[in-house]
């Protein structure tokens, strides 16, 4: 499939708010991307606006505060999806198509049970939680992430293992945690399955605490994928470093020209689809 034939759905409900830039950047790389309201997938929109999930090749759930996130972050959006399109989602994932969650989208994927999904394609109950940051409030700051995936994840095909990326953290609930008591076992399994994709590091590539890891996430985990590597959730925003001129330090390092660190994640997903389908 040519890149221009790759259809990307950037899904939104009320309170989603990173959809415009996400669509723009998929389009910038040549894909056929559009915003899709969840109601367009559930049949609740007028006939001419209805869409079918299966007609898309990539599903992205962008950042924001879906439905206000007044319960746990991502919980309401996930509940609405699960109630209406759970089978479509499972089919989409099992067909090997990429599902991409950024920030609130990562929280939604965890609430849906699509990540880490140790107990099946989509578990009935969430297996992890994105809890409140240790600071107790929202944190908007640049982060460094190191790619730690051994090759299974579709979203880092163009990001060599060990490479450090600049991204932007912007969340209140970004601290990934696993059920008490089985935490160690889960971590071991995630590593064995090659599901840990990015971890927070400091400016010299060392694992470090606050503010380098803005939330206090377990094991500095910033991004996970499912076992097949086609469902990917990342807490900081790669799209906010899509171009070099969006890098927080471009006036002192590297200049404004060209694609930025975050673009490789979008490009990886597109190349994965283009080659596979």
């Amino acid at each position: 499939m040519k890149t221009s034939e790759v259809r990307v759905a950037v899904l939104l409900i009320e309170g989603t708010n990173c959809e415009d830039e996400s669509v723009a950047y998929f389009r910038y790389l040549g894909a056929n991307a559009e915003k899709v309201h969840l109601k367009q997938l559930t049949g609740d929109a007028p006939a001419e606006l209805r869409r079918r999930l299966e007609d898309y090749d990539i599903l992205m759930i962008p950042g924001g505060f879906a439905a206000g996130d007044y319960i746990r972050a991502g919980a309401i959006f996930a509940a609405r999806m699960k109630r209406r399109i759970d089978r479509d989602l499972v089919e989409f994932v099992e067909a090997g198509k990429p599902v991409f969650g950024v920030c609130n989208g990562f929280q939604v994927l965890v609430e849906l049970g699509l990540l880490p999904a140790l107990g099946g394609t989509m578990t009935e109950m969430p297996e992890a939680v994105l809890a409140m940051n240790d600071s107790g409030h929202y944190e908007c700051r640049p982060s460094f992430l190191r790619q730690e995936n051994r090759g299974g994840c579709a979203f880092v095909r163009q990001v060599p293992r060990g490479r450090m990326l600049r991204v932007i953290s912007a969340h209140a609930e970004g601290k990934i945690m696993f059920p008490r008591g089985i935490e160690k076992r889960v971590l071991k399994e995630l590593k064995r399955n090659d599901q840990i994709v990015f971890r927070y590091v400091d400016d010299r590539g060392r694992y470090a605490g606050y503010p380098w890891c803005p939330s206090g996430a377990v094991d500095n985990i910033a991004a996970l994928c499912n076992r097949d590597g086609n469902v990917f959730g990342i807490q900081p925003h790669p799209e906010r470093c899509f171009f070099r001129y969006l890098h927080p330090d471009w006036t002192r390092t590297g200049g404004p020209e060209g694609l930025g660190d975050g673009s490789a994640i979008f490009a990886s997903a597109l190349s994965y689809v283009a080659e596979r389908f």
């Binding site: 708010n17 990173c18 830039e21 929202y138 700051r141 400016d203 503010p211 927080p248 330090d249 002192r252």
Partner: peptide
């Protein structure tokens, strides 16, 4: 205060309110 506000959403902020070496702005 500045870091409690999202000054990055919409991915169009090219010069931020805090400037300099990452971690030292």
């Amino acid at each position: 205060v500045i870091r409690q506000y999202d000054h990055e959403v919409r991915a169009a902020t090219v010069i931020r309110p805090l400037q300099g070496v990452i971690g030292k702005q």
